[in-house]
Amino acid sequence: MTGTTNALEITGLTVDLPTEAGGINRILHGVDLALRPGRIHGLAGESGSGKTMTGLAVLGLLPSGARPGGRIRLHDTDLLALSPRKLGELRGRAVSMVFQDPSTSLHPMLSIGHQLTDHLRHHLKLDRKAAKERAADLLGQVRIPNPDEALGRYPHQFSGGMRQRIAIAIALACEPQVLIADEPTTALDVTVQAGVLRLLRGLCDDLGLAVLLVTHDLGVMSAIADEVSVMRHGLVVETGPRGQVLTAPQHEYTRTLLNALPGAAAARARTTTDPAPDLRSAP
C-alpha cells in the first residue's frame, strides 16, 4: 500500500573524504531525496556521480575518515545523529541494503540457512527452530525452489540470479521499512535481470517497502521506478515522476543519458508513462 508520508528523507547530504595530501575532497554536495512507502525511487547517473555513496551514507557504511553532513531522517530519527551502536541496531532491521554482486555479500563458507538464521537470531532474538522456519519462508517469498532443501546449500551451488534473490531475502529478513538496492542487476544477464526486477516490484507493492534503486541504467528505470532522480557530480540535478523525467527531461544531463541508451531501451524510455507497470505477470 502506498503511503503519503515519507519513509526516508535525505536533506542537504554532504560527504567529505580526506585526501592523501591532507586536504578534503567533497563527494556529495547537498543531496535531497525523499522515499515513500510502496514506491520505488530510482537514482540514476554515471559512475562516480555519488549514487552508491548516497546509499552507503544512509546505512552508516561510509569509508573510514568520511565526514557526512546534512540530515537523513528515517521517520522521526536522524540517522546521522545516532551513535554507531544505535545505527547498528537499525541497520538490517529498519533499513537494509542489497549490493551489486551477491558473491561478495554472501559468505562462501557458510550455508544459506546459516547466514539467514544468524541474521534473524541476532536482530529478532528468535530461537533456532523459529529462525529456520522464517528463513524457509523468506526463500519461498523470493521464489527460491525447494526452500527447506536450499537452506543447507552454499552460495556457489546457486546461479547468479538465485544468489541475488537470496541476498534480497537476507535484506528483507527483519521486515525493514526501507530497502536500498545498489545496482542489483548489473552482474546478471538480461533474462535473469528481468526476473529480479519483477521480484523487487512485487515485494515493494506487497510489503509496502520504500525502495531506493541505484543504477546507471535508465532502461532499468523505465521498467520499474515510480519516481526518478538523476545525479551528477555529487548533486541531484533532476527529480520527478518516472514518465515526466524520461519523456520530458528538464536537465541537459538527463537528456544526454537518455540519448546514450541503445535503440530498444531508448524507445521504451521515450514511451514510458507513470505509474510503473506491474511486472509480476510478465513472462
Rank of each mutant, 00 (worst) to 15 (best):
R163I: 04
H29Y: 09
I112V: 15
F99Q: 03
L62G: 06
Y253T: 08
A210M: 06
A223G: 11
V58E: 13
R134W: 01
E175L: 02
G92R: 05
K132L: 01
L126D: 07
V58F: 12
L246Q: 11
T247N: 12
T272N: 05
G202Q: 14
A21Y: 01
S47A: 02
H107P: 00
G30S: 13
M231K: 03
G140W: 04
G202M: 09
L279Q: 02
P249W: 09
A7I: 11
G65F: 11
G65Q: 08
H29E: 12
V214D: 06
L124G: 04
V196R: 00
R71I: 03
A194Y: 07
E46Y: 05
E149T: 15
M53P: 07
T5V: 13
Q157Y: 03
R198H: 05
L172F: 00
A267D: 14
R36V: 09
G60Q: 05
S111R: 14
R270W: 01
Q244P: 02
L139F: 08
A187S: 12
A187W: 02
L139N: 13
S103W: 07
K86F: 01
L212I: 09
A81W: 10
L35H: 01
R121M: 15
G234K: 05
H114Q: 13
P262G: 10
V98Q: 02
L13Y: 10
A34W: 00
D274V: 01
S111Q: 07
